[in-house]
Each structure stands twice: as C-alpha cells, then as structure tokens.
Design a protein around this nucleic acid. Sequence first.
DNA 1: AGTATATCGATATATATTTATCGATATAAC
DNA 2: GTTATATCGATAAATATATATCGATATACT
Lengths: 220, 220
Amino acid sequence: MYYFFAEGVIIIEPKCISRVILKRLPIYLGYLKSLPNDAPPHISATTIANVLQMGEVQVRKDLAAVCDIGKPKIGYKVRDLIDELETFLGFKDMNDVIIVGAGKLGKALLSYEGFREYGLSIVAAFDVDDTVIGNMNSTKPIYHISKLSDLCQRMNIQIGIIAVPAESAQAICDYIIKCGIKAIMNFTPYLLKVPSDIIAHHVNIAASLALLSKQLSEQT
Amino acid sequence: MYYFFAEGVIIIEPKCISRVILKRLPIYLGYLKSLPNDAPPHISATTIANVLQMGEVQVRKDLAAVCDIGKPKIGYKVRDLIDELETFLGFKDMNDVIIVGAGKLGKALLSYEGFREYGLSIVAAFDVDDTVIGNMNSTKPIYHISKLSDLCQRMNIQIGIIAVPAESAQAICDYIIKCGIKAIMNFTPYLLKVPSDIIAHHVNIAASLALLSKQLSEQT
DNA sequence: AGTATATCGATATATATTTATCGATATAAC
DNA sequence: GTTATATCGATAAATATATATCGATATACT
Ligand SMILES: NC(=O)c1ccc[n+]([C@@H]2O[C@H](COP(=O)([O-])OP(=O)(O)OC[C@H]3O[C@@H](n4cnc5c(N)ncnc54)[C@H](O)[C@@H]3O)[C@@H](O)[C@H]2O)c1
Ligand SMILES: NC(=O)c1ccc[n+]([C@@H]2O[C@H](COP(=O)([O-])OP(=O)(O)OC[C@H]3O[C@@H](n4cnc5c(N)ncnc54)[C@H](O)[C@@H]3O)[C@@H](O)[C@H]2O)c1
C-alpha cells in the first residue's frame, strides 16, 4: 500500500492488491462455486475461514479488497460474491493463450478444458517436430512454429506458455516476445531473462515437489 | 524465527527456515549448476543477485541459512555451495513418489525424467481405466488402483501426486492417506481436506495462468 | 420494544519479510 | 607494509502480511 501526502490529506492509492491476496481469491471463488444450489444464499467470513482453514479476519480483509457487500449478522451474498470475484479476477472475459512445445506436457495443457472457467482460451500449440504437427487427439490445432508470429499478431495474443526442452527455453522466449507476447508462463526449469515490461512466471513442478518432500522429511 | 527467553539469555531456535526462502533456494541451485565448467570457482552474492534480479542482501541471507562459507572479497565457492544446497534440500537421496491418475497430465509427469535431479523418483502411476493400465509409452508402469496400497506399504512410499478428475480428488486423497501417503501434491482445482499431520500442496495451473493474465491486464 | 448474538469493518498489535547500513576481513595494488 | 576495495555477516529500518481486539449493526429471540 502506498501513501501519498497532498496538502495534509492522506490519499491512499487503492490500485495495488498484494500478490498474496491475489493468490487466495481464486481459492475463495472455487469454494463458493462448489457450494450446492440448495445452500443458504448468504455466507459468513467465519464459515469460509473454517472450511478453508484460514483466519477469519484474513478472509474478511481479502474479500474487502474486491467487494463491499458484507452485512453484519448475515455475511456475504454468495451469488454477488462469486460475481464480484469473477469480475475482479477477469474470469468473465476470455483471454487467448498459445503454447510453445507440443510434447507430453504441452499436449496435456492444450487439451485441458479447465482453463475456460478461468477466462482463458488456449488457441493453439506450436512445435518444430513434424510428427506432432497437425491435429491428432486434441480439438485444438498444433502448428509449425513458423506460423506463430502471424497468428499472434492477427489475433493479438499476448499470453504464452513455454513447454519446450529447457535448452530452447530462452530462444523461444526471446522469439515469442518479438511476436508480441507480453506475459509468459514457463514450465521449464530454466530461469528466463526477460525485459522489464514482460511478465514471466516460472512453474517448476519438480522443485515444488522436492520442497514438499523436504517438508515431509523435516516434520518427522 | 522464535525467541525463547531463559534466565535472561536469548536462545534462538534455528530449526525453522521460512517457506519463502525455501522456494528461492532451488533457484540459486539451478543457476549455480548452469554455470559453465570454466567459470571461476568462486561467486559473489552480488553477482548472483544481479543475474537473478534479486537483492544482494537477500541472496546473502538466504545462503547464510544453509551454509557459512562466504569469504569477504572472494564470495562463495561454487562447488561447495551447490553441494550444501543439494544436501540441505535433500536432492542427494532419492524419495519415491507415486501418481494417481494416468491421464494426460499424469502420463506427462510419469515419463518426465527431470524429477531425478531433484532427488525424486517416480515409481509408478495408478488408474482405474483398463485401457491406460499396463506400460505403453513410458518406461514407468501404470497399475490398477487396487495395487496401490500394497506397493506403497511394501516400498514405504509417502509422497503422492493426484492427477485424477476433480470429482474423485477427495476420495483418492482419503484413500492414499489410508495407504500410508503423508505428503500430497494435488493438481486438481479441488481444495483437499486433510488431517493436520498430512501435508497437502495445491497446484492450480489454470488459476496461476489466470493471475498472470490479470497482472498483464492491469499493467496497461 | 428490548436484549442477546453473530458478524462486519476498522484499528491496533504481532510477526514475517525485504531492504538499507555499517564495521570487519581477505585479497590486490602500490 | 600500507592502502584501497570487494565482499561478507550482523544489525537496524522499512515494508508487508497475519492476527487480535473492539465498537457498530442487522437479525433473532424474548
Ligand atoms: N512432462 C512433465 O511432466 C514436465 C514436468 C515439469 C517440467 N517439464 C518441463 O516442460 C518442458 C516440456 O516437457 P515435456 O515432457 O513436454 O517434453 P517433450 O520432450 O515431451 O516435449 C517438448 C516438445 O518441444 C518441442 N520443441 C523442441 N524444441 C522446440 C522449439 N525450438 N520450438 C518449438 N518446439 C520445440 C519438441 O518437438 C517436443 O514436442 C521441459 O522443459 C520440461 O523440463 C515437464
Ligand atoms: N491436463 C492438464 O493440463 C491439467 C492442467 C491443470 C489441472 N489439471 C487437472 O489434473 C487432473 C487430471 O487432468 P487430465 O487432463 O490428466 O485428465 P484425464 O481425464 O486425462 O485423466 C484423468 C485420469 O484419471 C483416471 N481416474 C479417474 N478416476 C480415478 C480414480 N478414482 N482412481 C484412479 N484414477 C482415476 C482416469 O481414468 C484418467 O486416466 C484434473 O483434475 C485436471 O483438472 C490438468
């Protein structure tokens, strides 16, 4: 939170929401959406906190960041809350995504239907291997990498997933940035170097699993 | 960090390393391991910080948590540092892992060779679908779920990956806990409920990608 | 109507994490 | 040998995050 002082009055810049909160919002949303239709129309922060094993104050604070419809004794209207969360998180309008590398992981992602619920539309995958190019099992096309530039520019696609071997990751990264990609999710264990105006998010499944393993061994 | 006061003396409990630091350690390790063989044998926290775009004090503090071999003007001996990081993170001795759900994602993980470098050995996958059971493309076996209990108990496997449809996630979770699994990595968007002595880590790829998308749209 | 209670939002405190500062030290240059 | 400098570790300050407390309020109960 940034504070600006102007003529003695404190103006609080409301734009920025911390990354930690942002990561929790989809969890609340997921839980709310999992509630049965015959559940009561309102829910309290206390209930949410208990189910999700969080502090109730934290839940209230997180929710306050996106909505202001909590009523004492009643709680939040579930439908409104879902709506506000979805709107806030941008799940309501679709964002196009391309995948580079249609190997085992790339193909799994390409055919995964679950993205839609999060406002994401996987448009196509790109590869260099002629044996995977074309549309085999998935409903989504796999093109040669040479078609990437044209497609991204025509459709104004700004989000890319990298699922190529680690050795090619940086080259592909540089390339897709040149093609107009502005945000990258990288599944390779290679740490990408990107210009400051490009957002890169690294997902290292093996490292995460290893940390889980370490946690386990420490618990004893 | 916890502080205990005993007879006026402050005793600092050294056990706990924060999760944030733990997540960064594999990044340092990965970078150090990527250095060419003809690189100088020592490296400074300043250099690491610059390459990885982190604060140099943070790098020093993180490294101090696992080693104490930094020398002024010289820095850290790369080989020792790699060794200490790998030892600390437990990458040197193998931990067995099983996967439940040999669908698209499960099979990708099953055949992924990269886990070995992190001290992880994927032993087998389990499924209910007869058409995927047996060993097709991967070198690792896919068994019927009914074999899970026996294998886990015989090999004393404590780490499990859940890659079944979300609807089955909780049931599978309960089941593998009964079979002796103590740490779970869950790839379904369903938030698992586990007893307090079980570690569960949730990986929601779609939600992460959606947050990336949101970040992008906010950047403007 | 009056009171009890669940719940909210706000404020305050505690903890955790990041960033800055500074003296100490090992090497290199002179 | 002396001095300059890169670098470390430690301590301190700033920021961020989590938890606790408390008055206010909407409903339910008497
Ligand atoms: N498979 C997993 O479960 C898993 C888990 C964690 C991380 N990863 C990482 O994800 C990446 C992909 O893994 P995978 O198992 O799918 O590998 P894979 O070998 O099955 O697939 C890689 C694909 O990338 C293609 N490719 C290679 N160079 C390319 C280029 N320059 N441009 C476009 N396409 C190119 C290949 O033709 C291949 O189809 C790897 O970096 C791996 O480390 C995979
Ligand atoms: N595919 C992806 O890229 C992706 C991305 C993010 C999340 N996920 C999640 O991962 C999970 C698996 O995704 P997928 O694409 O591999 O789905 P999938 O349908 O390809 O595979 C699911 C597998 O689980 C098996 N299965 C079903 N019930 C089972 C049970 N009770 N016990 C054992 N096996 C059972 C099925 O036979 C099937 O082989 C889903 O929950 C999905 O939401 C997948």
